[in-house]
């Protein structure tokens, strides 16, 4: 019982988030359009997460939006939009030591959208819906790692699987919600975001 894994995982989460966010501060990393688009999409996602998170349990129309953002705008904007989502909704729902890990998970969803884009540039809404469904479970599995290391002893595969099994119904709800919302709204979202991506893309001929 000597090593204190709970402390280490929480601190690792905080450090990882700080390190990744520091990439945002680099000079010239983001221009004003990207900053405002991240803020608006993050606010939209946070609103979706907080408003429906309370009312509809885990059926949130949010994860697919983060994913499509990553798909359209690339890994950087996707990550920041994702990472800001839990941070901002937690201002209204309550911050906690779960926040850094949630930020990482949501950020990963956005990055994964960009990965899908890199692997299948022509991917349509069906691929995105499938990926989104999988992420419903993956998100739960990653968050369980945090919960498991902080509150469970001994740290064996059995305890992890039991933690995961305890959250399985919630994960399924989340995955089904993702599937439903992405199938219903993904296509239009994709179109709207691509339209604004074109509009945002300004190239200076002369500085």
């Amino acid at each position: 019982m000597g090593t204190n894994w709970g402390l280490y995982t929480t601190l690792t989460g905080i450090l990882a988030v700080l390190l990744l966010l520091s990439a945002m501060e680099k000079k010239g990393a983001l221009d004003s359009r990207q900053v405002s688009v991240i803020a608006v999409l993050a606010a939209l996602c946070a609103a979706g997460r907080a408003v429906t998170g309370v009312g509809l349990l885990f059926l949130q129309p949010t994860m697919f939006l983060v994913e499509i953002t990553g798909f359209v705008y690339g890994a950087r904007v996707g990550f920041f939009t994702g990472a800001m989502t839990p941070l901002i909704s937690n201002f209204f729902m309550g911050q906690g030591s779960w926040t850094p890990w949630q930020m990482l998970c949501w950020g990963l969803v956005g990055v994964f959208g960009a990965v899908v884009k890199a692997l299948f540039p022509q991917a349509g809404n069906k691929t995105l819906t499938a990926v989104c469904f999988l992420w419903g479970y993956l998100y739960g599995a990653i968050m369980d790692v945090w919960q498991w290391t902080v509150f469970m002893r001994p740290l064996t595969w059995q305890t992890y699987l039991l933690t995961w099994a305890a959250g399985f119904s919630f994960d399924s709800l989340r995955a089904i919600g993702n599937l439903f919302f992405c199938a219903a709204l993904g296509h239009q979202t994709l179109k709207i975001l691509q339209y604004f991506h074109k509009k945002m893309d300004v190239q200076y001929l002369e500085r």
Binding site: M24, V35, S36, A39, V40, A43, A46, M84, I88, F91
Partner: peptide, 10 residues
């Protein structure tokens, strides 16, 4: 800035 903007827009 992003956090403040988004919190304000929320």
């Amino acid at each position: 800035l992003v956090i403040t903007l988004a919190t304000r827009l929320f």
